[in-house]
């Protein structure tokens, strides 16, 4: 095995896997909120107001969840279409078009999936 392969691939992989194993151990040793560690889900469930299994509150929650799923499907469709367009732009040899499609995909991921606006939004607006 050449030293180049060792340095370029195996070493970063070993460091990465080692770090992640350390992270895994940390999640075991330091599970975060002590109340959560002691009581688990019961601690959270006790704090959260119960949503009834039927009625207008439940229906509103279901509708909101479905709307969230629908947005995800629409963004996935948009990303798919833009990827295909990007591929054709490459066949045409248009770097500018490829760049524009790449920007549009990035913006969609940042806005819809990464919720970038939540960084500067106030707590009340959530």
């Amino acid at each position: 095995m050449s030293s180049t392969v060792l340095v370029m691939i195996l070493l970063p992989l070993a460091v990465g896997v080692g770090t992640l194993l350390g992270l895994l151990v940390l999640t075991r040793v330091m599970p975060g909120d002590p109340a959560m560690a002691k009581k688990g889900a019961a601690a959270v469930a006790a704090k959260a107001p119960a949503v009834p299994a039927r009625g207008p509150q439940y229906e509103a929650l279901t509708a909101k969840r479905k709307a969230g799923f629908r947005t995800g499907v629409m963004v996935l469709g948009l990303l798919g279409v833009l990827t295909v367009l990007e591929f054709f732009a490459a066949a045409l040899g248009s770097t500018i078009l490829m760049f524009l499609f790449m920007l549009a995909k990035g913006a969609a991921i940042l806005y819809y999936f990464m919720h970038v606006t939540s960084v500067w939004r106030t707590e009340e607006a959530h």
């Binding site: 969840r65 799923f69 995800g72 963004v75 996935l76 798919g80 991921i109 819809y112 999936f113």
Partner: peptide, 18 residues
Amino acid sequence: LLSSFYMNRAEVAIAHDD
């Protein structure tokens, strides 16, 4: 891209207790 969609789905689901 598909995995990102499912990750978003997971986040939406837990945000609505699903």
